[in-house]
C-alpha cells in the first residue's frame, strides 16, 4: 500500500500545496514523492518526537503536514507529541504509519504495531484510517487531506484476491453476502478471508464486512449489518490489534448503546507473542488465532 500512497501523494501535490516530513524512512517508495515535492519534502532525520512536533508547528502556520515513519515509530515513541502538540492544539497533522499490525513480521516485536489505532482513538479529535486494499488508499489519503482534524493512516499489505471486485469505497463495506454469522474484519487482514469464504456455500458463509475508518465508522453502523445482528446472527470481529482499545470493543459498546445485542460475540485479536518465538506476519497471525483458517473453524465448526 505504501507505493499506492506514494502515487496518491504525488497526485495530491498537483492539486494542493502540502509538506511531507519523514523520519528518515521511505526507501524504495518515497523517492518520487521527494522529487515531486522538492522543498516541501523534508527528511527530519531519525527523530520521531521532533518530526511530529515540527509537523504540529508547520500546521500551526497553515502548512498541511504529513509525518511519516513505520507504524510503531510514528505512534509509540512520540505519543506525547501527538497528544500535546497535535491534538491539544487541534492541529490537523496527518500521521502515516507503514506496516501496521504484524506486517514487519520477522523484523521483531519493536517493529510491530498492534496497539496503534486503539491508542490513537484515545486522543481528542483523532481519526484513524486502516485501508484494507490498495484501492482504498487514495480514498483514505484524500479524506485525510480534506478533514480539518488530525488523522492517523495505518498502511499494510494489500491481500485482495486477484479477480475480486470491490464494492465502492465506504468506511463500512459488505464484501460478501452470506447467511452465517456477521463477520467484521478490520483493515488488510480481510483480504485473506475472501478466498476461503468464497469456497463456502452461501447458506453457511458468514456475511463479511470490512471496517476501515474510526471513529467515523463506529458512529454510523450500516443498517444492513444491524438488521443481520438483530435477526439473531452471531457477531464475530477479527483484527490485527490487541483487545484493549480494539475496534471489537468499540463496536460492542456502540451496539450496546443502541440496545442491540448479538446472539453471541466472539473477538479474535492480536495476542502479542504467546510462544515467545517470532516469525512472519502469517506466523504471528496464526499464533494469535486471527488467521482465516482458525477463525472459520472456530465459528463454523
Amino acid at each position: 500500500m505504501r507505493n499506492a500512497a506514494s502515487v496518491v501523494w504525488q497526485k495530491l501535490f498537483e492539486e494542493q500545496e502540502y509538506a511531507f516530513i519523514t523520519g528518515d524512512l521511505g526507501f524504495m517508495a518515497l523517492e518520487p514523492v521527494r522529487d515531486k515535492l522538492g522543498k516541501w519534502f523534508i527528511n527530519g532525520g531519525i527523530s520521531e518526537q521532533n518530526i511530529v512536533s515540527v509537523a504540529a508547528g508547520m500546521s500551526k502556520m497553515g502548512v498541511q503536514t504529513w509525518a511519516y515513519s513505520i507504524a510503531p515509530f510514528i505512534y509509540a515513541r512520540p505519543f506525547e507529541q501527538i497528544r500535546n502538540d497535535v491534538c491539544l492544539n487541534k492541529l490537523p497533522v496527518k500521521l502515516v504509519g507503514n506496516g501496521g499490525g504484524y506486517a514487519y513480521g520477522s523484523m521483531g516485536s519493536s517493529h510491530h504495531a498492534i496497539e496503534d489505532y486503539g491508542v490513537m482513538l484515545t486522543l481528542q479529535g483523532m481519526n484513524v484510517h486502516v485501508p484494507a486494499f490498495a484501492e482504498d488508499v487514495e480514498h483514505a489519503v484524500r479524506r485525510m487531506a480534506t478533514t480539518p482534524e488530525p488523522a492517523y493512516l495505518r498502511l499494510g499489505r494489500c491481500e485482495k484476491p486477484k479477480d475480486f471486485v470491490l464494492p465502492a469505497y465506504a468506511p463500512w463495506r459488505q464484501l460478501l453476502e452470506g447467511e452465517g454469522p456477521v463477520l467484521v474484519v478490520i483493515g488488510p487482514l480481510v483480504g485473506s478471508y475472501i478466498a476461503p469464504l468464497l469456497a463456502l456455500a452461501p447458506s453457511k458463509r458468514p456475511s463479511l464486512w470490512v471496517l476501515t475508518e474510526m471513529p467515523a465508522g463506529l458512529d454510523e453502523l450500516p443498517e444492513l449489518m444491524i438488521q443481520e445482528i438483530k435477526a439473531g446472527r452471531s457477531l464475530v470481529v477479527v483484527e490485527e490489534h490487541v483487545a484493549h482499545g480494539s475496534a471489537g470493543h468499540h463496536l460492542l459498546a456502540r451496539l450496546h448503546a443502541q440496545a442491540i445485542a448479538p446472539a453471541t460475540f466472539q473477538h479474535f485479536c492480536a495476542q502479542g507473542y504467546p510462544s515467545g518465538f517470532y516469525g512472519s506476519q502469517v506466523y504471528h497471525r496464526q499464533e494469535s488465532n486471527i488467521d482465516a483458517n482458525h477463525v472459520l473453524k472456530a465459528i463454523l465448526g
Binding site: 516541501w40 523534508i42 512536533s53 515540527v54 508547528g57 507529541q81 491539544l88
Partner: peptide, 30 residues
C-alpha cells in the same frame, strides 16, 4: 490553546515548545 493569538500553543510538558517553534519557523520559511 485556542483562545488568544498571543498564546500560540499549549505547553507545559517540557521539551515540546522548541520543536513546535522549529516547525512554526519552518512553516514561515517554506
Amino acid at each position: 490553546a485556542g483562545w488568544m493569538p498571543e498564546i500560540a500553543v499549549a505547553t507545559g510538558s517540557l521539551g515540546h515548545g522548541f520543536p513546535v517553534a522549529a516547525g512554526m519557523a519552518k512553516g514561515k520559511q517554506l
